[in-house]
Design a protein around this nucleic acid. Structure first.
Lengths: 203, 203
DNA sequence: TTCATCATTGAACGATTGGTCAATAACAAG
DNA sequence: CTTGTTATTGACCAATCGTTCAATGATGAA
């Protein structure tokens, strides 16, 4: 005895949101067609009616997360900072704050990352996402290198961007397992030292 | 019709090695009692005879990996480097090389890391392991700060160690998903720039 | 040799999984 | 209203999961 029908596309989004809730709370391996259906208050058959297979549901969830999540949004208060090095530091702080405040999202990202090891399509998508993220750092990295060419001799904008992303990913790993004791200021103080920049630049 | 018996403890190690092969290749979620047993050329019942439950087997595998893997081994050629900053860079390079050359191990670590999100015991053990790793960086970080106190004003050895570990973890994430295109020299060149150290110090 | 111990096996069980499908009701078009 | 399309459901299936257990034989002690 079928229930009410939903308008086009609305049901898919409803299912994807339920899938996100399940996956981000219990982990990707614990994601079950029946669990997603129960969370969305639908039958399991309907989930597989809209997404042919569980694998396609997971791929759709990945696309949904990547589409929904802000990749790198450089606000005015950051782009207004005159000194390039200060700007990069402010951006790092902002990103670290953002990631540390969304541990469940981070967890889901790393779940997909790990799954990409054996799932080629997931790996490709995650890799592309990482490339986009790194690319967003490029302009600021470029400014930093142009401002102080002698210090960063031999360093390319790509290389500096990669290091910045790598640092943020490391912080994300830390914040994922231990969000309470994750001290952003401690990290940034040391980063300031590495960058030879003593003044703290609050956001 | 039982097969041959094994000496005390030997069978456990045999099973743990098989579990490592399975988990590092297919992922922790794909680890199955039957898969481990087949890899070890034993019956599934025997695996559960030695490790009461699958959960205990996973915990034992985590202990085995943490016990087997080198945490941080500072060789003489590194401790002989006079300049503390050069020493830290050389250590970073060595660690990045090591991690990049063992992508399967890294993948298993991140699997456990992700599982720790919902598994308290795993989380505790992983956290302790990370603390040990960071602690191993402390002496060198301390030397760096003492050598150039004015540059790293306000930076504690703990903070600098945390940043170093964070950077390595970020590199590990990168090398895990894309081991072929992972360019260690590019990372180190940029790190050199960040540290204001232009001379490359090969290991 | 005899015997008790116990590591080992293979078959089984109940639960859960992803996936299929016939039946049915909600809805749009006519 | 009638009709055709299709979204929706619940029952079902085969496979696989972790786990249990009776049967059995290898092993060491006496």
């Amino acid at each position: 005895m079928p229930g009410q029908k939903a308008s086009e596309g609305a049901r898919q989004i409803q299912i994807l949101k339920a899938a996100f809730e399940v996956a981000s709370r219990k982990g990707l391996d614990a994601l079950t067609v029946r669990l997603v259906a129960r969370r969305a208050k639908l039958s399991a058959g309907l989930v597989l009616f809209h997404f042919k297979t569980k694998d396609q549901l997971i791929i759709a969830l990945l696309d949904y997360v990547l589409r929904t999540t802000t990749v790198l949004y450089i606000t005015d208060d950051i782009s207004d900072i005159a000194d390039p090095l200060d700007r990069l530091l402010a951006l790092l702080r902002k990103e670290m704050n953002r990631l540390a405040s969304e541990p469940r999202l981070i967890r889901l990202f790393f779940d997909f990352w790990s799954k990409g090891f054996t799932h080629p399509l997931i790996r490709t998508k995650m890799q592309a996402e990482l490339d986009r993220y790194r690319e967003a750092f490029r302009p600021i990295a470029h400014d930093v290198l142009r401002a102080e060419p002698e210090r960063f001799a031999g360093v390319t904008p790509e290389g500096l961007s990669a290091v910045a992303v790598s640092f943020i990913k490391g912080c994300a790993v830390q914040s994922m397992i231990d969000p309470e004791n994750f001290d952003i200021d401690e990290y940034l103080a040391a980063t300031n030292g590495l960058l030879g920049q003593l003044a703290s630049q609050p956001v």
